[in-house]
Amino acid sequence: MKYLQLICIEGTTGTPEAAAAMRDNVGPWVQETVARRINIVGKPLDDPASAKTVRVRNGETIVSDGPFADSKEFIGGLDLLDCANLDEAIEVAAKHPVSWFHAIELRPFPDGLEIPAIASEDLRYLLQVFADEVPKPPEVEDAIRREGEQWREAAGDALVFGNGLQPRETATTVRVRDGQVLLTDGPFIETKEFLAGVCLLNCQTEQEAIELAARFPLARHHMVEVRRFVDL
């Protein structure tokens, strides 16, 4: 089963203790998960303040500065994991130092999804696609699906990987406190509109990423958040 591991930062990033733990333990975590063929690819994200939120309304593209959810909590990075089952994903998440100080959200992808090898250098921008649970008329759903396929073709090589996630009720949030693994049924941030899918882009400029976000069919109904990946 493939999982999206979201690095969830709660409040401030920077106690010296947390910083030291991250510095000392993220490297060995990556080594171990790569050696076990669990870690497909992963990368940290730039400061959420640099995010752009893209909506398209009445044919007009509206780009606003900052993340869509205005909260102290934010996503600081992500990994794509290939695990035998949820227990293995939890075991791996509980070894990641972020779960000791903040939290990790595990979201399953649809069963049977194949993910080809991805080079970390190819990850430059992330599109986070948001949706809500309100069902749309079937013709709208069909149009979104059709346009999604067209979008995929038009994006070409700029799209490294893109896929929808299983519903948010299937999320599990992992925290480790006092050596105990604490699990929560559900996502890290509860908002009306929630993360429904991710696209990893290899485009050169933010402008290109914003244009791709604006052409994404769900941008007309909800929103797409553009984030920049950074090198470790």
Partner: peptide
């Protein structure tokens, strides 16, 4: 329904946990 859907979609394994997980 929701609980069963999560077991399937998130791949919660149908098993007795291995000995190292039992105390937890």
């Amino acid at each position: 329904v929701r609980a069963k859907a999560k077991i399937a979609a998130a791949a919660i394994p149908y098993r007795v946990p291995p000995p190292e997980l039992l105390p937890e």
